[in-house]
């Protein structure tokens, strides 16, 4: 650097050596992760227990560990009642999901996109089933079927399940419709699409993730429901009511097998969805 230039230039200060800096790691840094780890262990304890006892070489009741066996997994239907109850659960869940998802999606679209009278009344009617304790819904339906003289059975279970799934479908799909840019549909119409074509080629594909999520939620709610089913099942048994009834006299290990299998299946679906979603995002360079 030349001496003549010093007058006109503001010099940077001479380089000084900085000391390495390390902040002491505080209590808060590891306390939260430690707590979360313990909390997750706690959350998973009953699941692990149920899974382990699906391999128990049990007799009538599956409480004491008697040794390891694959028999329960290989012979699920050795306990015919469990198998039938499980089949009923699938049938009820599938049918109720189909009806609730269809009706709920229609309502969700109407709520976001259209003006109509009695909006607040309809919103209340959709909200109340979620704010009502299950036992009240159950008793109400049972009272209605009793008054109308309807024979309880698979039909009444499906009718009941569709009812309580409906509101949850509306909420889930509505969230998706709200984030949908109306300009996309306008673009579809601008590009010579008839209303029907625009719905099936633009709106529906964009809503599909929401609809699928709603259907999965609906099936899960239906599959695990006990209280409403128990009040309205008559002599028909679903998986939860079977477990409830046999809880007094001992539950066969096959019930643990079914619960574990459903658990693994559900977790697998969720994980696969997560992974494909993540890899798609990566491909699109969103992350």
């Amino acid at each position: 650097m030349s001496a003549t230039s010093a007058a006109t230039r503001t010099e940077l200060p001479a380089a000084r050596e900085g000391k390495p800096f390390k902040r002491r790691i505080g209590l808060g840094t590891w306390l939260l992760p430690a707590y979360v780890t313990i909390a997750f262990v706690f959350l998973l304890i009953p699941i692990v227990y149920t899974f382990i006892f699906s391999f128990n070489d049990s007799l009538k009741s599956n409480i004491v560990w008697r040794g390891f066996t694959f028999d329960n997994w290989l012979g699920i239907c050795n306990q015919v009642e469990v198998c039938i109850a499980f089949g009923n659960s699938l049938l009820v869940g599938g049918t109720a999901t189909l009806i609730a998802t269809t009706l709920g999606t229609m309502i969700a679209i109407a709520l976001v996109r259209y003006r109509f009278r009695f909006r607040s009344g309809i919103s209340l009617l959709l909200f109340l089933p979620m704010a009502t304790p299950e036992v009240v819904l159950a008793a109400g339906l049972a009272a209605e079927f009793l008054t109308a003289g309807v024979q309880k059975g698979l039909i009444t279970i499906i009718l009941a399940h569709t009812m309580f799934c409906l509101s949850f479908v509306v909420v889930t799909v509505k969230a998706r419709v709200t984030t949908l840019d109306p300009a996309l549909e306008e673009a579809g119409r601008d590009l010579y699409g008839s209303p029907t074509q625009v719905f099936w080629r633009v709106t529906f594909p964009l809503l599909l993730p929401g609809i699928v999520a709603a259907a999965m939620l609906s099936f899960a709610l239906s599959f695990d429901d006990f209280i409403i089913t128990y009040f309205n099942a008559g002599i028909v048994q679903t998986f939860p009511t079977y477990v409830y009834i046999s809880a007094a006299r001992g539950i066969p290990a096959q019930a643990n097998v079914i619960a574990s299998a459903v658990f693994i299946f559900a977790i697998a679906i969720v994980l696969i969805a997560q992974i494909t979603n993540a890899s798609r995002r990566k491909r699109l360079g969103l992350n």
Binding site: P46, Y49, D224, I251
Partner: peptide
Amino acid sequence: IAPFFISFLLRTLAW
């Protein structure tokens, strides 16, 4: 949400 996927009744019985 994992506990959701194992039957409500069975996880209570497990406890």
